[in-house]
Amino acid sequence: MANKPRRYFSEHEKDEIWRMWKSGEGLSTIAKSLNSLSPSIYDVLSRNGGVKQIKRQRSSLHLSLAEREEISRSLAQNKSLRMIAKSINKAPSTVSREIARNGGIDNYRACKADKKAWECAKRPKQCKLSLEPALRELVALKLKEFRSPEQIAGWLKLQYPNNENLHVSHETIYKSLYIQTRGVLKKELLKYLRSKPRLRRTKTKVKNQRGYIQDLVSISERPASIEDRAIPGHWEGDLIEGTHASYIATLVERQTRYVCLVKVDSNSTYDVIAQLISHAKTLPSDLYKSLTWDRGTELRAHKKFTQETDVNVYFCDRCFSRQLALIS
């Protein structure tokens, strides 16, 4: 079978690649979900060293181009500043300052004013290493001594406790090494890192880390009708791993104890959810009303399962083991 050709990604697909990468998915998993190849995914991520650049956005508090065009039209119609301010739902003082700094009433032009505002807007904060040459030299020196960025950050705080200009986080050091567009630390310093991954996976808060399941509903919120096993159609499931990376999803109906086995290709949430959806559609809706699962990340995409099947998903509390989840 011929290999899939490399492809170009839309902006939406690129956002999805970065979202999955940040959540902890590997290159092969991301490629499979987008029907692509790992090298194509790597090309997208490697341009910024595996760290997504924050796109510059206009603040909702500032005047938009449409509002500036309304100001320009209203000035041509000799409307007062208060009338203009009311039409765009802004304070008269805001309109007055906008006109004054862009040529006055006679020379105000919306496009020119908008371009000037965008160019004068505050840029993202400059990297501390680019602002502090002494700090940059210290970091480079310690990297050449095979110190890790975490060790360097800690050493700086101990060595210069009263000089915050010489303090820097380890994440800033990593980003300066992996994002060469910053022009701060030379790429050659990468060879001094103890581990040398080709791409940097930014450390994030718990809600974005691998293993976290967003928007889950706890088993404690499961209706009483499910708890007493009085009504059929409520299932409990788990994923079992066999030899040679084989996987089977086990489903147990709570009232009858009827067991279904669903073979899945991998423990990827996309494979597991796809097979569970296919299996759910083979059963009458009256016999599949809810699914209870443990905290396994294979059900991270549980919302897609619910959208496709109209089956509510509940998750066991962390204190429950995988075995207890099936017999609760």
Rank of each mutant, 00 (worst) to 15 (best):
P5F: 05
E11L: 07
E11N: 11
I17N: 08
K22H: 14
S23M: 14
L27Q: 12
I30S: 01
A31D: 07
A31F: 11
S33W: 01
L34C: 07
L34N: 07
S38H: 02
S38E: 14
S40W: 02
S40E: 12
I41T: 06
R47T: 04
V51M: 00
K52M: 00
I54F: 00
S59G: 02
S59R: 08
S60T: 01
S64D: 04
S64N: 06
I71C: 09
R73Y: 10
Q77D: 15
A85D: 05
T94C: 05
V95Q: 07
R97E: 13
E98S: 05
N107A: 13
K116S: 13
K122Q: 14
R123D: 09
P124S: 15
P133W: 08
K142P: 00
L143C: 04
K144D: 00
R147T: 02
R147Y: 00
E150P: 00
A153N: 05
W155C: 06
L156K: 02
N162R: 05
L166N: 05
H167V: 09
H170I: 03
H170S: 13
I173G: 02
Y174N: 03
S176D: 07
Y178W: 08
I179P: 01
I179T: 09
V184T: 11
V184N: 06
E188M: 10
L189A: 02
L189T: 08
L190Q: 10
R194K: 14
S195L: 14
K196N: 09
T204I: 09
V206A: 14
I213N: 06
S220W: 00
E221T: 10
I231E: 14
G233R: 11
H234V: 11
I240Y: 03
H244W: 09
I248M: 10
E253T: 02
V259W: 02
L261V: 10
V262Y: 07
K263T: 05
T269L: 01
I273P: 12
I273N: 11
H279S: 07
A280C: 12
K281Q: 14
T282C: 10
T282G: 09
L283W: 08
P284N: 12
D286L: 11
S290Y: 05
W293N: 01
E298D: 04
L299S: 03
L299M: 15
R300P: 01
T306K: 13
D310M: 12
V313G: 08
F315K: 02
C316V: 04
R318T: 15
R318A: 15
S328Q: 15
